[in-house]
Amino acid sequence: MINLFNYIDRPSPIHRLTGACKLVCLIAWSVAAMTSFYTPLLIFLTVASLVLFRVAKLKVKDISFMLGIMVVYIVMNNVLIFLFSPEHGTSIYGTRTVLFRIAGPYVVTAEQLFYHLNVILKNACTIPIVLLFVCTTNPSEFAASLNRIGVSYRISYAVALALRYIPDIQREYRDISLAQQARGTEMSKKASLVNRLKAASSILIPLILSSLDRIETISNAMELRGFGKGKNRTWYSGRKFSKMDILCMVVCLVLVILSLTLTYLNGGRYFNPFI
């Protein structure tokens, strides 16, 4: 089965951090990466995120599906930037070093390539961290941590439940699809696009109906045990911050400050090697 947003339980220092700490770090890390185009910082963050990935004992195989989507996203992003704004790099860095011409307005400049490098680096240093967070945070702790940083517990719990039911629904989808195939619904590439869409609807309708049944049961079960009664709730899996948690959060906040300082000292968001 495809691993979408699943917790992968392995003994590692990253797994041991509390969910709330990891969430704070994730946010801080993303802010640091998003606000800056300071290339040395981005390179540092990218390398660091890959190291953290190793520390968490995650394997490429675990996340191959999501990694694929990420690569497609980065490629698309860059292609579109180039198509719509081939001179973007020139306007940012103020110089124009033509490497070669393609056709019409499409000219490849060193500035543009450098800009693309920065865009790729920004993706490459944040996306692994998001995956890292998703794969090392127990979903119930995830709810607890969302709640801890101020999100309403109802929403936090809803998000956690949705994540939790993904494997169940995947399984159900498979069962329904097999039963439909047995009745002759063609799901393979042999069928035309229209027929495949029709086939998909013949699976989605029963899937939605049975999910609605499931939702009714679970919401009754939750209310019967007092969910939604108070303004707050506590969490069985909630944990106090350890020294390590605090250290990590401090490091990530330092990164944000560093990123902002660099922007300030640099007199702009962009690190410019062309002047």
């Binding site: 119930s140 439940l161 009754n220 079960a221 045990r225 007092g226 939604g228 969490w235 069985y236 899996s237």
Partner: peptide
């Protein structure tokens, strides 16, 4: 409830038993 799968809210046995206590704001 009849459906013992459907009423399993928590992610683990312990969390499920604790669910009502969580809603009562009992300290961890």
């Amino acid at each position: 409830l009849q459906d013992s799968d459907g009423q399993f809210i928590g992610l683990t046995v312990a969390e499920d038993i604790a669910f009502a206590l969580e809603n009562d704001c009992i300290p961890t």
